[in-house]
Nucleic acid binder design. Structure first.
Lengths: 150, 150
DNA sequence: TATAAATAAGATAAAATAGTCTTAATTCAG
DNA sequence: CTGAATTAAGACTATTTTATCTTATTTATA
């Protein structure tokens, strides 16, 4: 998998927050229920995003979390780096410790091109774009839809 | 990471085998030393490739493993599927259980395009092409080079 | 036929990732 | 000031992945 589960949870929560435009704090409880993610686990994930100043949090009644910046100013990549670190997609596809233009692994050229595309996408796509995309509702209700089908 | 470590070991060993053209069996011990991978672990990985009939193995003196087909007839994808299974790159980038054209997640379009490229590459590139690529030696000696540098 | 060379198989351990639970700290409202 | 609502922090557990170790099986050859 390209991104860790933890990271995916963070992304889904961030996009959901972006789709709830308005400057109010949203409780993690509410997010966890809409996203069908364990409340405690999501809490941890969002704490990390708060530390990275992607989210802002507030304790106590009427507290919760919200985006720390405008959704248009937060990229997919910001969230990924905060949670999965900035080595994402930097490694060689064959896991070689030394793989560069000078000393490329056999897959170097193909992989470099693809990495470029993915990184470019991550750097370019912002949370508001994701939130605006058709079927943002998939973010939170698909688990329910899925459950119903079984 | 896109591919598991186990899978990467399998790929490196397969490419190395492909570069040792000739129909002789090569011992896993020799492969493990050239690749700097634990002998026992590599043994397990290659057992899986043998089960999938990508490799052929032979016990006893002069035994070892070799490619079961011509290197030009084994794709990168063959090895990946054997080890990481065929769900590789099938999941939604945001981990949604339902994400399709009808009900796409916010990242669906971008991700579908990139997945297509990667899958296409994996399906297209064969072991002989990888073995023929410049610096196949990176496959096995870069660990040593790396160690020297430190 | 005995011994050594090899892979196969399975038990076990270690490390990383994922998830749960409890307690602490903060803040609002009455 | 007290109690309830909330995030923060940290201990703990579970699962998966990675790695190691031991024993079994097969095979060549002296």
């Amino acid at each position: 998998m390209l991104l860790s589960n933890t990271c995916i949870y963070g992304l889904r929560a961030s996009v959901l927050l972006a789709s709830k435009h308005g400057d109010k704090f949203v409780t993690i409880r509410e997010l966890s229920e809409e996203l069908n993610i364990s409340f405690h686990f999501l809490t941890k994930v969002l704490q990390q995003l708060t530390k990275s100043e992607i989210l802002q949090s507030y304790k106590g009644p009427n507290g919760g979390v919200k985006l720390a910046k405008k959704a248009s100013e937060i990229t997919f990549m910001d969230v990924v780096i905060s949670i999965d670190g900035n080595n994402i997609m930097k490694e060689c596809a064959l896991g070689m410790p030394v793989c560069s233009e000078l000393k490329p692994c056999p897959l170097h050229d193909q992989w470099t091109a693809m990495k470029g595309n993915i990184l470019n996408m991550m750097n370019t796509v912002s949370l508001d774009q994701l939130a605006a995309n058709r079927h943002t509702d998939t973010l939170y209700n698909s688990y329910i839809a899925h459950a119903r089908k079984e």
